[in-house]
């Protein structure tokens, strides 16, 4: 247990947050190595099922990040996404999934530093929550 490290999946939009993550690297800004990135064209591509499935698969946390309002490469994908995220977050927290397991952010292509900060924050939040149990499906049904 002591050497447990949270594993977090991050859905990053190609044009802003993924580029911001690249910029963080290019600028050699260091951040916790706990995030596994799934590149999507737009935060609007993120079906809530992706998030739920990630939790069920045992990721300790999920981060979804897109372009700031107004910056969406696809005009309004992030606005549509924002409505999905709000309902998803409400639903998860209502049934008792810990707040902090699933988080959402806006990170632009120029915000390498913000990306690093967001990852650090989410990692820290998830670390405090401990390994995910709620919604996690383990093979054979046992915990």
């Amino acid at each position: 247990m002591s050497d447990w490290e949270p594993k977090i999946v991050a859905f990053l939009c190609n044009w802003c947050s993924y580029a911001g993550a690249d910029l963080a690297g290019v600028s050699r800004i260091q951040y916790p190595p706990n995030v596994r990135v799934v590149r999507v064209p737009c935060s609007g591509r993120v079906n809530p099922l992706f998030v739920l499935k990630s939790l069920e698969n045992g990721f300790d946390g999920v981060l979804v990040s897109g372009c700031h309002p107004g910056d969406c490469h696809y005009i309004s994908g992030n606005y549509i996404a924002r409505r999905k995220f709000a309902t998803l977050k409400t639903a998860l927290e209502f049934i008792g999934v810990e707040p902090g397991r699933v988080q959402f952010s806006w990170v632009s292509a120029g915000e390498g530093e913000k990306f690093a900060q967001v990852v650090a924050r989410v990692t820290e939040d998830v670390r405090k929550l401990g390994p995910a149990k709620r919604l996690v499906k383990t093979i054979g049904g046992g915990q």
Partner: peptide, 12 residues
């Protein structure tokens, strides 16, 4: 649909 003014207090 969406509104540009939708609340986003939960976004990092």
């Amino acid at each position: 649909t969406y509104s540009e003014e939708d609340k986003q207090e939960f976004m990092l």
